[in-house]
Every structure is written in structure tokens, then in C-alpha cells.
Design a protein around this nucleic acid. Structure first.
Length: 194
DNA sequence: GATAAGATTAACT
DNA sequence: GTTAATCTTATCC
């Protein structure tokens, strides 16, 4: 790791470990002049050998950002409506990423609420589409370097006493039983199980 | 060129 | 529990 390089090694190993390491980390978005900070409380891991992953059949125009090195963003449009945010993981060319499924507001709660139609409480960001909306994320951020504005990822950790729960992923139709959803046990801001 | 499905959400019965 | 909204992408012919 040379000078002026950020150490993303904690995201560059096995994608399941990256998904675990992301719990407790903080996303800082500066969009439209507002700064929002939010703590990641729920993630899902996707990799190229995984039938549920966008990268399963190799690089395409949509998923090419997932083949960048760890520390970039991958954003895709879900159902033509929702911007879902991923942290690219693993090594360049690997096609691995971690979907941010839920966040806990840290700063800029009023801005998040306004973007979410005035809603408050856990529905603010307890789902990937809601996270994208609350943070002001859109497709222009796919491939974005997460060391730079308008979207930065700051390493964090679990708080004293917090533990991780592991479950199958939500909303997919392939590899439905793989235990690749990770969340902070008992956290009020995680999405609801199906 | 056509078509089906989708890492979702909110509203409605 | 069910369904509409909404449109890009991948896949197939």
C-alpha cells in the first residue's frame, strides 16, 4: 500500500468476510449540498460463482463496475424504480460485491426524511431501494471511487456487545438457501425478514 | 427485434 | 396477502 492509497484490504478478501466487515461502517454522502452519514447495519454478499449475482454470466455494460477493485460503488436500477447501492469487494476482475440493505441514520436525519417522503423510523432505510433514496444515490455513482465525494465509505466497527446474524438473502430466485445475508443482531434499523 | 424477469416498494383489499 | 408502478437489461429468436 503506497502513500495516498486507502487500505481496502478488509474488503478485498472473501466476499462474505467483506459483507461482515461492512457492518458498522459509515457511508457519507454529499448530494445537493447536504451531508448525510449513515451506519451500515445489513448487507448481502454476491460473487461471480453465485447464480443470484449480476456477475454470474460475466461482465456486461451494466455490471462492469463490479469488476473494479474493492472500494468502488456499484449502483443498479431495480424494477425500473429503485437505485440499489453495492460496495465492490474482492480483487479487480473478480466480480464480487456487497449490497447495502439497510442503514441507521447518524447525521442528516432531516435530509433523509425529506428524501423519503417525510417518513421516519426504521422505514427510513430498511431496504436497498430505501437506502439509495435516503442517501441520494443514483446511477451516476456506479463505478465511483468510495474515497471521494459525493459518496465516501468510512470504516467502522460493531459496538460493544453487538453481534452478527446470518440468514439467506431476500428477494432472489436463485441460490435462495445460501447464507449470505448479514445483519447486526437485534438492530432496530434492519429490514424485516420474509 | 421481441420478450420476460428483476438483489423493490408502497398501496390496497 | 396481493398487485401496480415502471423500465433497463439480458436472453432468445
Amino acid at each position: 500500500m503506497g502513500e495516498n492509497q486507502v487500505d481496502w484490504s478488509w474488503l478485498a478478501g472473501e466476499v462474505e468476510q467483506a459483507a461482515r466487515n461492512l457492518l458498522g461502517c459509515v457511508l457519507v454522502s454529499t448530494v445537493d449540498g447536504f451531508t448525510v452519514r449513515a451506519r451500515i447495519v445489513e448487507t448481502e454478499a454476491y460473487s461471480q460463482d453465485d447464480p443470484a449475482s449480476h456477475t454470474f454470466r460475466g461482465p456486461t455494460p451494466r455490471n462492469q463496475a463490479m469488476f473494479l477493485a474493492a472500494g468502488h460503488a456499484y449502483v443498479y436500477l431495480s424494477h425500473g424504480l429503485h437505485h440499489c447501492l453495492n460496495m465492490v469487494a474482492g480483487r479487480a476482475g473478480q466480480g464480487a460485491g456487497v449490497l447495502v440493505r439497510a442503514v441507521e441514520p447518524v447525521d442528516g436525519l432531516d435530509v433523509m426524511q425529506a428524501r423519503r417522503g417525510g417518513r421516519s423510523g426504521p422505514v427510513l432505510a430498511n431496504g436497498p431501494g430505501k437506502v439509495g433514496q435516503a442517501l441520494g444515490v443514483d446511477l451516476s455513482l456506479t463505478g465511483h471511487d468510495l474515497t471521494l465525494p459525493p459518496l465516501r465509505l468510512v470504516r467502522g466497527a460493531l459496538r460493544q456487545g453487538e453481534t452478527i446474524s446470518v440468514t439467506p438473502r431476500i428477494g432472489i430466485s436463485k441460490a435462495v438457501d445460501l447464507p449470505r445475508r448479514f445483519l447486526i443482531t437485534g438492530n432496530a434499523w434492519v429490514s424485516k425478514a420474509r
